[in-house]
């Protein structure tokens, strides 16, 4: 197992390097110059000022040199400096990390739990009214654009009945502590987490249902029935466990992307996470910050892929670690 992990880590580093180089050039391919953006916002855009900013950003150096400096920095875990925000990139990302993880992990848990639950029910009662109802419910949230669901949620729960706050991470200026603070954050979390969670739920529901129906037809399930095992035990121990493999794969892919936040959800609900940081960095062509977010996300995807591979082993003992 150790050599399996070691091999995957080496591969991961190579992939990461490729991602950095690719993103580095990709970002610079987009039209727009951070110096011009900043000069424009300053209400003055003369040659001297723009040149000064380019020098400050290190944008006056040849591209390969800029790349070399960047890669060298990453090797020492230095993601560079955001001149736009006048702060180290790693600090900016770490500041936003807790909020992002809180939102995306909650949404992830909601989508996975509800998805597997609904999928199991749908498969168990395949072809009945319950199956159709679950499918329609799941697809509705999958088909509706997130920003629309978010705005409708705000209209209903914030404007009409005033149960939930419409924006932010906590009540600004309330200075709550302890349990009161936790409840406050939870109230702020409900709408964004549900919006995001319901969207991803559909995929898990559909996948669990399809996979379970497939496994149900297999011989070992028949054998289990012939043995006279109760239906609940067959569903849980034989069908569901085997049916979960594709769900775990998908969850692994999703989990890796969680760190990137959810740009739309974070924007509509003013949730102070990484998704918004990335979006602003993109609009302002804050190259270092944008690259920093990309690198962090890539690392997370790589890590979660590794974890997924390990979880496979637990879910399905037939899979061996091939080094």
């Amino acid at each position: 197992m150790l050599s399996f992990v070691a091999q995957r880590v080496v591969k991961g580093v190579i992939v990461l390097l490729a991602i950095v180089v690719l993103n580095f050039f990709l970002i610079r391919l987009a039209p727009g110059d951070p110096a011009v953006v900043m000069a424009g916002e300053a209400g003055a855009s003369d040659q001297v000022f723009v040149q000064q900013l380019r020098e400050k950003f290190g944008l006056d150096k040849p591209l390969p040199e800029q790349l070399f400096i960047y890669v060298k920095g990453i090797a020492t875990l230095d993601l560079g400096f955001s001149f736009r925000q006048q702060a180290p990139v790693s600090k900016l990302i770490l500041e936003r990390l807790p909020a992002t993880l809180l939102l995306t992990l909650t949404a992830f848990a909601i989508s996975l739990a509800l998805g597997v639950l609904f999928g199991t029910f749908a498969a168990r009662f395949a072809g009945t009214f319950l199956d159709t109802a679950i499918t329609i419910f799941a697809l509705i949230f999958y088909a509706m654009p997130i920003f629309w669901v978010a705005l409708m949620g705000i209209l209903l729960f914030s404007v009409a009945v005033d149960w939930l706050p419409s924006f932010g991470y906590e009540t600004v200026g309330a200075n709550l502590t302890g349990l009161a603070h936790l409840i406050d954050v939870a109230k702020h979390l409900i709408m964004p987490a549900m919006t995001l969670g319901l969207f991803f739920m559909a995929t898990y529901t559909r996948m669990t249902r399809a996979s379970m129906l497939e496994v149900k037809r297999l011989d070992f399930v028949k054998t289990a029935r012939a043995k006279g095992l109760p239906d609940a035990v067959i569903q849980r121990r034989h069908v569901l466990r085997n049916a979960l493999l594709p769900v775990v794969t998908l969850a692994g892919v999703h989990a890796g992307t969680l760190i990137g936040g959810a740009v739309i959800t974070e924007t509509v609900f003013a949730w102070p996470g990484i998704g918004r940081l990335m979006y602003d960095a993109l609009l302002q062509r804050d190259y270092n910050l944008l690259l920093g977010v990309f690198v962090t996300c890539s690392v997370m995807v790589l890590i979660f892929n590794l974890i997924t591979d390990l979880v496979y082993r637990l879910v399905d003992p037939r899979i061996e670690f091939a080094a």
Binding site: V159, P165, S166, F167, G173, T267, V268, A270, Y279
Partner: peptide
Amino acid sequence: DEIYWQIIPDAAARSVAYETGK
């Protein structure tokens, strides 16, 4: 005594923040 500048990136959400008295 104090001023809070609230950062709300979405225009519709800013309108709602005013409407709901925040």
